[in-house]
Design a protein around this nucleic acid. Structure first.
Lengths: 124, 124
DNA sequence: CCTATTTATTAGGTTAACCTAACTTTTAAA
DNA sequence: TTTAAAAGTTAGGTTAACCTAATAAATAGG
């Protein structure tokens, strides 16, 4: 079954943090997801139950293969949408980023691919 | 404050029904919103409380000016997104419709306008 | 090495949006 | 014109995602 928007958001946040190479702590996740620590704890427990992350209390969080795949996919959709909004339509950086954050959960893989090719063609 | 995605969906559904000119009943709304009748009742009560619709029990539902404005806006965003997905990217009719339904809640008025102009230019 | 601060968890509560079951009102057919 | 079916409402329950307050564990500075 498809993960919820919220689960996708957490996986994306953790994925972005993982790209920086440092240990990922609950506070980092809470901060990036703009929620309080208890909400992050609760969310991470759900992610664990679904096999998306590994975590022991008071320790760092790591993505499983399954979790990484989703985090990466969402981040990829985000980036493509961002580029389209900013460079093709001319939306400001900030606004393009914020809208990409919202739309990223709702475009199919097919749309992502077609949009990607379209951007490439249009900007060349 | 911005209406929720759910409220926007109901207003859009009611707006679409209103275009057909017939009386709008709870069952029509429930059907178009893909919810059961009690959910529609509850939703309509919230819409009334927020001044989006008028309704007396066991009677038909009408949009206020305020409600119509939002329903129309969302439907307009839907149509522009649909056209972009279908005619510019080449997504199938069904899929384009379904994705437009999801994305419509998240694009700004600015994005809608720029997308509209872009489609016009691209398809000419 | 101990204690103050930071980080994390647990407990308990809220809200939005849905549901089923039971009941009421309206409509329409015999 | 009565009654069965359809439409709508009310009552009560569930789930997801958040919150605050209280508590516990880990870490770092004196």
């Amino acid at each position: 079954m498809k993960p919820t928007k919220s689960i996708e958001d957490y996986l994306e946040a953790i994925y972005i943090l993982s790209l920086k190479g440092k240990d990922i702590r609950m506070k980092d996740i809470a901060q990036l997801a703009s929620v309080k620590l208890p909400s992050a704890t609760e969310a991470i427990n759900k992610l664990i139950k679904n096999g998306y992350v590994e975590h022991s209390p008071y320790s760092d969080v790591t993505l499983t293969k399954k979790g990484e795949k989703i985090g990466k996919e969402i981040w990829n959709k985000h980036q493509i949408l961002y580029k389209f909004l900013k460079e093709v339509l001319g939306i400001s950086q900030d606004k393009a980023f914020r809208e990409a954050c919202l739309i990223e959960h709702f475009i199919s893989d097919e749309t992502r691919e077609k949009l990607k090719k379209f951007i490439k063609k249009t900007l060349s």
